[in-house]
């Protein structure tokens, strides 16, 4: 008997923690999004919050901005990350020095840096009177501050995109690199025997090899960017804001009347991320990404 339930006992503490603290929170939020709010004397259920959200421009604008920013960030960081991984890999092939190892580590630095700091770095670099603007002015490319494009706290979301691209490209590289390492010896030698150059090697072997892991990595970045709060809070504009910020704006508006809507935004956000997560999971299983490329 004990043998049979032992694994469940082992699982119980971790699962219970998540159920209580995480799903409990989701459920609590779900009830309140339906207007069940005993604290202010509301005990009825209604879909009012959801219907008013679906009728508000603010919600749809916010959703569009969120998708746009997440899509552009994931594509950019995927490209940058793949380039980093391939370059480091090609270098690695040629030299086995410790210096390279150090570089390898340095590339992971943005990964260790907290998102808030990453966001602030982008502010200092790209704001209209920021570091790049100063350099361009010194070189003579621009004459006045307004000549520099508005890239931080802009309504398109370039600042957020830049911050995520910088932060997540190393993540993509990290996901792709192990796959590259597996190609390492044998294929490289074979291709060399047949006289393939670097470029052919990349096109014929490297790209197809990393494609599955790469796609999944980009997708993970998309899901993460879609639902993160700190960076858009720091680098975005008041309107239209990304969904997490929009939800927080509603949540902290100073009146409890907006709470059901805020929590409804949260629930929609959770549903969308679960959906996206399932898609990513499906493809990673199907392409066997986590096992790597043989």
């Amino acid at each position: 008997m004990l043998r049979k339930i032992k694994p469940y006992l082992l699982l119980f503490p971790a699962a219970a923690t998540i159920v209580l603290l995480f799903f409990g929170g989701l459920f609590d939020g779900f009830l309140k999004s339906l207007g069940y709010f005993p604290a202010i004397g509301e005990t009825g259920f209604s879909l009012k919050a959801y219907s008013s959200l679906f009728h508000s421009d603010a919600f749809w604008d916010s959703l569009i901005v969120t998708i746009r920013i997440a899509a552009i960030s994931s594509v950019l960081s995927a490209f940058l990350g793949a380039i980093v991984a391939v370059v480091v890999f090609m270098m690695h092939e040629k030299s086995r020095s410790g210096a390279l190892n150090l570089w390898n580590r340095l590339f992971q630095l943005p990964l260790t840096i907290p998102h808030l700091v990453g966001g602030y770095v982008i502010v200092l670099l790209f704001m209209q009177s920021g570091f790049l603007s100063k350099i361009l002015a010194k070189v003579g490319v621009i004459e006045q501050i307004p000549d520099f494009p508005v890239l931080v706290n802009d309504s398109f979301g370039w600042g957020i995109i830049l911050a995520y691209t910088w932060k997540e490209a190393p993540f993509v590289a990290l996901m792709v690199y192990p796959v590259l390492e597996r190609i390492h010896r044998k294929w490289r030698d074979v291709s060399r025997v047949y006289g393939a150059g670097n470029w052919d090697f990349i096109r014929e072997i490297v790209v197809p090899a990393i494609l599955p892991a790469w796609t999944v990595a980009a997708f993970i970045v998309f899901v993460f960017t879609f639902s993160a709060f700190e960076v858009p809070y720091l680098l975005g504009v008041t309107y239209p804001s990304m969904l997490p910020v929009y939800s927080y704006q509603l949540y902290s508006s100073g009146t409890l009347a907006d709470r059901p809507e805020a929590l409804a935004v949260n629930l929609i956000l959770a549903l969308l991320t679960v959906l996206l997560g399932l898609i990513a999971y499906y493809f990673s299983k199907r392409w066997n990404v986590l096992k790597g490329w043989e």
Binding site: A39, I40, Y251, S252, G254, T255, L256
Partner: peptide, 15 residues
């Protein structure tokens, strides 16, 4: 400042 106004709203509703 809105942050603590909001916190007070919560504390009031939670009694």
């Amino acid at each position: 400042a809105q942050d603590f106004i909001n916190q007070l709203v919560d504390e009031k509703s939670a009694g």
